Amino acid sequence: MNGYRLIIACTAVISCAVAAFPEGAPPAHTGAKNQQDCSSCHFAGPEPSTQSGLRLLPLTESITPGSTLELTLVLLDPESRVGGFQAMVEDGRWKAAAGQQVVTYKDIEYLTHTHPVASKPHESGEQQTTFVLIWQIPDAFNTCSTLYAAAVAADDDDSPLGDTAYTLSASLCLEEIEK
């Protein structure tokens, strides 16, 4: 029986640099083509380290079109106290987990936080903020889709100052595997 494995290829960018958005980012701030990212409102944060950044990890190895897939979005930053995010994917839909909402804007679904998520110490010495993304893969999905995400490492002072924004672009491709 054939199955599929998800192959993820990511490109991450740090946006260093008007108000904070604790209830979720306004739509269209993922850093995707022709979109701003979180650095349009959040800036003047600490200098990122070589460990800092945004990463996307799959939680399962084998998937099938028409199923849901949990992905983990991991934000590492030297001084983050809380974090928030927004994500969009070219194909499929989002399912909101606890503390998240799906917002549709100009026929595009965005997944975002509904309140900041606390950061925790990471073994690298960074602060880590983790978000679970639940992607509903289309029934007819058989190639690749691009996921765009932006996240803010914030100092939890309810202002946009002292925050650092990160972006990520990931190709989500299915590869047929023998089971």
Results as ranks from 00 to 15, higher is better:
Met1Arg: 14
Asn2Ala: 14
Asn2Phe: 15
Gly3Pro: 08
Leu6Tyr: 08
Ile7Asp: 10
Ile8Cys: 00
Ala12Gly: 11
Val13Thr: 15
Ile14Gln: 07
Cys16Asp: 07
Pro22Ala: 00
Pro22Tyr: 08
Glu23Pro: 01
Gly24Tyr: 04
Pro26Ile: 10
Ala28Val: 03
Thr30Tyr: 04
Gly31Glu: 08
Ala32Ser: 11
Gln35Asp: 14
Gln35Arg: 15
Cys38Gly: 03
His42Asp: 00
Gly45Trp: 05
Gly45Lys: 11
Pro46Met: 11
Pro46Phe: 14
Pro48Arg: 15
Thr50Phe: 13
Thr50Arg: 15
Gln51Arg: 13
Leu54Ala: 11
Leu54Gln: 12
Arg55Ala: 15
Leu57Thr: 10
Leu57Gly: 02
Glu61Ser: 09
Glu61Cys: 02
Ser62Gly: 08
Ser62Pro: 04
Ile63Cys: 07
Ile63Thr: 09
Gly66Cys: 03
Ser67Pro: 04
Ser67Val: 04
Thr68Glu: 10
Thr68Arg: 13
Thr72Phe: 03
Thr72Gly: 07
Leu76His: 03
Leu76Val: 08
Pro78Ala: 10
Gly83Phe: 02
Phe85Ser: 09
Phe85Val: 11
Ala87Glu: 00
Met88Gly: 04
Gly92Asn: 01
Arg93Gln: 12
Ala98Asp: 11
Ala98Ser: 14
Gly99Lys: 14
Gln100Tyr: 11
Gln100Trp: 08
Val102Met: 10
Thr104Asp: 02
Tyr105Glu: 01
Lys106Val: 05
Asp107Ala: 12
Ile108Arg: 13
Ile108Thr: 13
Glu109Val: 01
Tyr110Thr: 00
His113Tyr: 02
Thr114Lys: 10
Thr114Pro: 00
His115Gly: 11
Ser119Pro: 03
His122Arg: 05
His122Lys: 06
Glu123Leu: 02
Ser124Ala: 13
Gly125Arg: 04
Val132Pro: 08
Trp135Ile: 06
Ile137Cys: 02
Phe141Cys: 06
Leu147Met: 13
Ala150Ile: 08
Val152Thr: 05
Ala153Gln: 03
Asp156Gly: 02
Asp156Glu: 01
Gly162Phe: 02
Asp163Met: 00
Asp163Leu: 04
Asp163Lys: 00
Asp163Asn: 08
Thr164Ser: 03
Ala165Trp: 01
Leu168Glu: 05
Leu168Trp: 01
Leu172Lys: 11
Leu172Thr: 05
Cys173Glu: 04
Glu175Ile: 12
Glu175Lys: 14
Glu176Gln: 09
Ile177Tyr: 09
Glu178Ser: 06
Lys179Gly: 04
